[in-house]
């Protein structure tokens, strides 16, 4: 069978679908001081999952606010800098109006994913962290 680390090189999706792959990618991103990008990506997925479940509206709102505060609010943050102003305004508007929507972070997640695909993921595959592991 194909070793997992070769699968990780196939696509970002294959990498993010494997616990060890995520761990190694995170180690690399930490070195580059941009691990928040990966955390944000997973936070968006987790939020969508929670949103799809019944009840617990208070928790959903609290979580949406927490994601907004940690990753979007500070314009100098590594995640915030890579999300389009219109996307940020949309999220801010949702939070301010307490209008919590399961898809409210989808566009931001797509933008962050594009950054990873074009930038950090190819760099990771050429990095010492990955090459030493293989």
């Amino acid at each position: 069978p194909t070793p997992p680390y070769l699968k990780w090189a196939e696509s970002l999706h294959s990498l993010l679908d494997d616990q060890d792959g995520i761990h190694l990618f995170r180690t690399f991103l930490k070195q580059e001081e941009c691990a928040d990008v990966l955390d944000f990506w997973f936070a968006c997925s987790g939020f969508r999952k929670l949103e799809a479940s019944e009840g617990n509206e208070e928790k959903k709102l609290k979580l949406a606010k927490a994601i907004y505060k940690k990753y979007i609010l500070d314009n100098n943050g590594i995640v915030s800098r890579q999300i389009k102003p219109a996307t940020k305004s949309f999220i801010k508007d949702c939070v301010m109006r307490l209008h919590i929507d399961p898809a409210m972070f989808d566009q931001a997640q797509t933008e962050i994913q594009a950054v990873m695909e074009e930038n950090t993921y190819p760099l990771f595959l050429k990095s010492d962290v990955y090459l030493e592991y293989t």
């Binding site: 616990q19 995520i22 955390d39 997973f42 987790g46 929670l50 979580l63």
Partner: peptide
């Protein structure tokens, strides 16, 4: 603030794939 962080952490973990 701690509970907000815990909530975020829990959310991030929930989205990660389980060990195969």
């Amino acid at each position: 603030i701690d509970s907000e962080d815990d909530l975020l952490q829990e959310c991030i973990s929930s989205a990660m794939p389980k060990k195969k």
